[in-house]
Design a protein around this nucleic acid. Sequence first.
DNA 1: ACATTAATTGTGT
DNA 2: ACACAATTAATGT
Length: 208
Amino acid sequence: MILELKRLFGNIFEEALIQEITRVGTLKEIPENFMMIDIGERIKGVPLMISGAIKISRENEKGEELLLYYLEEGDSCTLTFASEMGTTKSKIRAVSELPSKLIMIPINQMENWEGKYPSWRKFLFRSYQIRMDEMVETLDSIAFDGLEKRLLDYITEKKRVNGKNELQITHQNIAQELHSSRVVISRLLKKLEQTGKIELKRNKIVIT
DNA sequence: ACATTAATTGTGT
DNA sequence: ACACAATTAATGT
């Protein structure tokens, strides 16, 4: 655990903080498609991503979903920081997209870190900033881009995260994550296939 | 190997 | 958005 911590966070955190994290944090290995936290659940700790990818999404009253962003190695989830102080419940859902490794730090264990370690404070701000930027980006894409571009972005992003040029997913699932309907996605995908950008199989999309 | 069924995808209105 | 057709995968006999 120390090795991986140093590899990813060694340049950011001072030695003493690294020691502290190894003392109170626990290394978790998460299988693929595992729901780590759901909307409304109490937040128990702050995650530091070691490897893999986690999908962060939002859901409305009707149970319709919307993909917000991915967490990847070196990331942390700052929406949890927002609820770090109070007893707020999670506003988001986190499901692992790939088998993932991360270190969980219980929130009650990190109470005075912000005063004690300047690097921790910096990390919080930087992380918060990055996450905010990503959200503004997806907000922009929803507000200003057409669904076609959004779908293309979605595919390329998913391809990048998975590291394959083959995605195993149904049109229905895509529609849910982008908060659209299956028929529309099917039609757009077909258009993308005709322009030679992708190839459609059953339960599968190949990027060409 | 064949038939049946369920799930996914395609298309017209 | 809805309805239905077409295709594919899964399962039982």
